[in-house]
Each structure stands twice: as C-alpha cells, then as structure tokens.
Write a protein that binds this DNA or RNA. Sequence first.
DNA 1: TTGTAGGCGTTATCAC
DNA 2: GTGATAACGCCTACAA
Lengths: 337, 337
Amino acid sequence: MTPTPERGAATIEQVARVAGVSRSTVSRVLGGGERVSPEALTAVREAISALNYVPSRAARSLASRQTHAIALIVPEDTTRFFGDPYFAAIVSGIESRLRETDYILNLFIASDDPRSKTASYIESGNVDGAIVVSHHTSDTYVERIAQAVPVVYGGRPVRTRDGDYFVDVDNVLAGEEATAYLISRGARRIGMITGPRDMRAGIDRLEGHRRALAAVGLPEGPIEDGGFTRAGGAEAARRILDGGEPFDALFVASDLMARGAIDALRDADLRVPDDVLIVGFDDSPVAIGATPALTTIRQPSFHAGELITNTLLSRLRGEPAEHATVLPTELIIRDSA
Amino acid sequence: MTPTPERGAATIEQVARVAGVSRSTVSRVLGGGERVSPEALTAVREAISALNYVPSRAARSLASRQTHAIALIVPEDTTRFFGDPYFAAIVSGIESRLRETDYILNLFIASDDPRSKTASYIESGNVDGAIVVSHHTSDTYVERIAQAVPVVYGGRPVRTRDGDYFVDVDNVLAGEEATAYLISRGARRIGMITGPRDMRAGIDRLEGHRRALAAVGLPEGPIEDGGFTRAGGAEAARRILDGGEPFDALFVASDLMARGAIDALRDADLRVPDDVLIVGFDDSPVAIGATPALTTIRQPSFHAGELITNTLLSRLRGEPAEHATVLPTELIIRDSA
DNA sequence: TTGTAGGCGTTATCAC
DNA sequence: GTGATAACGCCTACAA
C-alpha cells in the first residue's frame, strides 16, 4: 500500500515510522549511513524514496549550525555584472562546481544597495561562506564579511592580507606581455586604457604595461581609465584622441573596453590595426565578435570559478587550502594587433 | 557600558535580557511593533542595535514555516543564461524589486542538471515561491514546482492553464508588426529565423509573422529555428542561404540571433540592409552594438522583471494579483531595415 | 547498532 | 500589553 504523504513535506519522524526505526537512525542514514545495520539502511532508504522525503533546510541549519548556503557577492551594479562576459564565465564555473554539492548559491549584487544590509545578513550566520568577485578599495564591508565567514576572492583583493584566500592570474606579467607584444609589432607610442585604479586588476595590468615600456626605454603614452565597461572604453579612447598626444597602439585592459575603443577610433576615422594596434584582455566571447577580431590575453575565468569554489569548499570542510592560486594567461593573436 | 556581544550572532533571548523584557515582546517588535508599549518598543530597538542583532533565518523559517526566499528558475544552460542580454534585463528587474524586501534570491540554472533535484528542493518547502523564466514544453518539472509553491512565469508558459500567473508581451502582435514593417519597406520575399518551437515566444512570433504575410497575400519565405543564440542565428541564416530560396528580408526573433545572421550574410557577401532587410527582437544592448544598428521590436524586459516580482510578492502576501500582465512592445527603427 | 532526550532560535497560542 | 510555554524539524551526545 502506498504511504499517504500528508500535506506538505515529509518529516524525518514520518520516515522513521514508515521504516520502523527511530529518528536517530534515519538521521544517521542521512549523514552517510555509518553505524547503521544493512537492514535498517535499506528500510530507511525505501521509506525516504517512498515518501519523497527531503530534509528541511531550515531545521537542519538550526540544529547543525550550518546553512549549506554560500553567498556570491558582486560589488558591482547589475548592469556591469550582466554586461561583462567575465562574470558570466566565472559564475558559470562556480555554478558548475557547486552543482555537484548540496550547497546553494545566494546572489548578492551588492553595489546598488546599502552595503551593510548584505554584510549583516551574512554576519548573522545565514551563509557558511562567501565568494567575492571584483573587489574595490572602497568595499570595506567585504572585510566585515571576511571576519564573519570564510571568504575566497576571485581576483586578489586590493590590499592582500595574510590569511586571504584568492584565485587570480598574474596581471602584472600579463600586462607586460601584452605591451611587449605591441612593441614587437613595431608600436612605439603605446597608450593604455586601464580598469579602475581601485581594483587590483586595474592597478596590476597598468604596472605590467609600464614595466614593458621601461624595459625597452620607451616613454609612456596616453593613459585613461575606462572603468571596465564598453561605454567607458569608448569614452577613454575619445579622451585620448582629444588629448592630441599621438599613439600607434593601445593596450586595453578588457575586451569589452576594447570594443568601445574600437568604436570610438572608427568614429575618428582611425583603422584597427592599420592605424592603431590593439590588444585586449580576457579573451571573452566579445573578442571574436569584434571587428577586427581581438588580439587579447586569455585568462581562464571559468576554471577560476571552479577553483574558487573548490578552495571555499575545502575551507568549509576544515581542510587546508591554497591561499594563493595563480592561473596562467596566454596571448591570443588575432587581427587587431 | 558596552554590551559584550558573545561570539556568534546575538539571539532574541539576549536582546530580551538587555531590553528587560521577554522574548515574546521582542518578537512582537520584530513583527511590526503592534501591541507593544512605547517604552518597551524603544528599549527593544535600542537593544537590537546595541547588539547588532539580526534574526536567524533558519529559526524563523522553522517556526513560521516561511523561508523568505524565492527561487529564480532558469531552464537553460549557463551559456545561454549569461549570453543573452534578455536575461540580464529581466533578472536586473527582479533583483531591484526584491532588494526593497527582505526576500532573498536563490538561483537555479536548471537545465544542466537532473531537473528533479531542483524540483524536490523546492517541493520540500525551501522557498516560498518561484519565478520561472524561459519555459520549454519539455520542462515538466516546472509543473511539479508550480504545484508546490506559487509560481509566476516570465513569458507565458507553453500551455497556459487556468490559474497560471505570468507577465509577457503580445508576441503575436509584435511579430505581426515586425513583418508588416518589412512589407512596408518593400520586402516581398520575407524569411524568418525563429526561436525554439517548444517555447511560447518562439511559437507566437512566428504566428504573428504568418499573419502579417497572410494579411497581404504574400507567400511564406524560408523559415529556420535559431534557438535564440547567436551561433544558432548564424547557422539558421546559413541554412536559409543553402536552401537557395530567394529572400529580400528576414524577421529574426531575437537581436542575438540577428547578429549571428548578419555575420552569416556578410560571409555570403550579402549586405544589410542593401541586399537583405532585417528586423530583430528585444532591443537589447546588442541591437545598437550591431553593424548596422538593428531595427527591432523593443520589449520592456527590466520592467517585466519588476512586475513578475510584484505579482509573486502579492501572491505570497495572499493578496489578489493579475493572472496575465501583458506589456506593450514598440518598433524601434534603426539601420537594418 | 540503536533509541532517548535535549537543544538550536523563532513564532504562535495561550493565559494573565 | 505582556510573558510563559509549546511547537517547528533536525542533529548530537549519551545511554542502552
């Protein structure tokens, strides 16, 4: 006879009754089936599937003091979050790894709202850990969060502290490679469109750019901040154009900005790569979509998402984890330089 | 003297002690402050802020049988979710509305995994309600979900049932308008790249297209499914090209597919709009990014996200809500037709 | 290996 | 208005 599941979800109590054991035994089975007799084990399992039982997350959290939830904190506005393929890739990686576990993802697009709301939510033990992608100097609430729960950063935090965990690429090295390539292609007056200077990626790529220039004794070209958006990239290019300083190449710190820059150059009747060489960054889908296809620095964002999640998961299990995971980048040569 | 917050989050018990009242009174204050004396009220409020108290979500859920969480279910793979600006817009709208409440968003990119996992999670009372965007015929698990909690659809479900709640545009009318415009521009052999036929938006836009053709007695041109992706749009265009059937215009059911189609046409040395007129759909950011800028049907996706959320919130409060909310579309004329 | 007994932090239902 | 006192569903010693 089919057990009649009463209205609402089944409870552990009902499972126990149907299986003819106590709640504790059911609970043990749920916890992995250690120290349970084979008979009890199968009885419980059958009862579980017969009742279509799934544990109540709330009750479990309350008793075990774990939420099995992790927060994804994006200190950006929704426009930038959804507008930049970089986030798409990294979140996909996080998602795909998390899917193998029973952790759940709580999404906080934190920039638009009073930060303290996100922070106090997390401080109150509503998630077990947090992933922070895209960290700005001004995001002090992130430090409050890091004090409350284990945090892993996607991209090293602006001021890295001992004990921080992060997954990143070597942006200095990558920036250096980008500009060195431009030099090797014959460019001599190389400008740059940077990311925000309050972000590690913004700072480091510029640093690499400068090193490459210094290495061969070339002077700095025009430098403008494009804010990691397409529109910002276009504006930065326009400012560079308006500045009047001559340039024959541009290292642009993200593919998205590079597209904007190309738009602006085209409006000024400059051709890429004929008049201006361009190297982007990310190798996101927009790199191939651009005309001309972008020469760019590939960074493994999807994989980074997976590793970020792995690191956090290890920490949550109390296992040791790598503090700094640095992934390799690769110069991808296409048509823009 | 500063109250010493013990390790971990403060509890309602501690607040009560500091305020010199009982837990019940604190709970009442939390619940809105009805039937509480002014003195008690301020005392409790002070205690709360002094202790930096935030209620435990788990405990509250357990006792009140509400989770204050809502599920966002996207029956697509992550690539499509992050690749299509339509989702960006609608999720932004949802997010922005939810931010004003104390509801939290649980993200389920459901297509890649065994659907039943998502469904049983929700059936077990782990969320109060769900929003489903992008519904396919094959997504039967959605119906299980709809039986367990209030659901509101973004885009009407494939087979609408009495009692369903959804926010949508009139895709038939919009499709009709798109093709009618093409006709008015002189096109006579009009093909179409559709969305998947197992989705309402895919079906309805095609229906509108056919009506417009029928209205003036024009024959049907080539029709291919582009799966609502850029690559799919390009392939569909190639199939149309290969088919050999002549055409002077294309109604493409999404801007993303339209971009793909333009790429494919360009590869075949066809120029837009000189050789082929194109009308897209969505008016997403890619519409202006395309070359030439896309003439398209604008649908208010961000606003739809807000309204979806409003509808769900009303239902959760037990208030009456509109079953069908139909938003207007608008033809935006640019360069592609 | 199994069951019993608390307790996790809230809300809800009562009397007072 | 206020405060005991049960639930809520699960986990975790502890005892058997």
